[in-house]
């Protein structure tokens, strides 16, 4: 497992296109969006904790699209290159290889995302002179961004097994927009629920107070949108990890079926 994790991590991290795409995307975020000012025209950011929360919100709204699309071709790769038979003949177990590959690919694809986020935190430290921002950035990243990436990573990793990669990418983008970004009142959607991967529950339940004016009209599926409390924040983290484990178990089951 460790060997396949290390290999997949290094392979994905050395893909030039990964860095080019993330670079272009972050350049757009910096020039077009308010990734510098972090106020988005809505927030009054005075404390490092809130600033890091807004930075997390911007990063987690836009960058998981790139994260998901860039790792969507990794699982079918061995079949496409026809090396799956050789890998199956090695003494390493299928489950260990699958988990190692998943962890390695996801970790490598999240590296540029983490650089974009912690880079902003570092800049905040120098500009505002508040070193505590780095600590808050680490906490926010671990609690509010990482669980979402664990789930989205499992989804994008497994999706191309069932669908051709092109169809999967279209559906993934549509899912991200429908299930995580749009306002809940527009149509029945998973966005702003405990199944949404944007980490809102941890940001507002555990870390920062809900910004003023952040009201929600009543919408369909509101029973999936409990209030922001520390308990629901932990529930969200649990849901994300459980969903990722469920998706990976399905992948393993799929592999066992194709074995026989």
């Amino acid at each position: 497992m460790i060997a396949s994790l290390r290999y997949e991590f290094a392979m994905q991290l050395r893909r030039p296109s990964l860095w080019i795409v993330y670079g272009l995307v972050v350049a757009v975020m910096v020039t077009v969006l308010d990734y510098w000012s972090l106020d988005l025209g809505v927030y009054e950011v005075s404390a490092p904790k809130e600033a890091m929360g807004v930075a997390a919100q911007i990063v987690v709204t836009l960058l998981p699209i790139v994260y998901g699309c860039m790792l969507a071709d990794r699982l079918p790769r061995e079949r496409v290159l026809r090396v799956d038979g050789i890998l199956d003949a090695t003494p390493s177990g299928r489950t260990a290889r699958l988990i190692g590959k998943y962890a390695g690919v996801c970790a490598a694809t999240a590296v540029p995302l983490a650089i974009a986020y912690f880079g902003r935190a570092l800049l905040y430290v120098f500009v505002e002179g508040q070193p505590s921002a780095l600590g808050w950035a680490a906490v926010t990243f671990l609690a509010s961004i990482l669980p979402g990436l664990v789930f989205v990573g499992a989804l994008a990793f497994a999706g191309p097994l069932l669908l051709p990669p092109m169809v999967f990418r279209v559906l993934f983008v549509a899912y991200w927009f429908w299930g995580n970004v749009i306002p809940a009142s527009l149509m029945p959607t998973l966005s702003h629920t405990v199944f949404s991967a944007t980490g809102e529950y941890v940001r507002y339940g555990l870390l920062t107070p809900i910004p003023p004016g952040y009201g929600r009209a009543s919408a369909v599926l509101d029973f999936l949108r409990p209030g922001y409390t520390p308990a629901t924040a932990w529930l969200w983290i649990g849901v994300m990890i459980a969903l990722a484990a469920a998706v990976l178990s399905l992948v393993r089951l799929h592999a066992s079926r194709s074995e026989s």
Binding site: V21, I65, C69, M70, A72, D73, F172
Partner: peptide
């Protein structure tokens, strides 16, 4: 392909 699709998606 993955990079081009990611850019379009973004």
């Amino acid at each position: 392909t993955a990079a081009a699709a990611s850019l379009v998606a973004f």
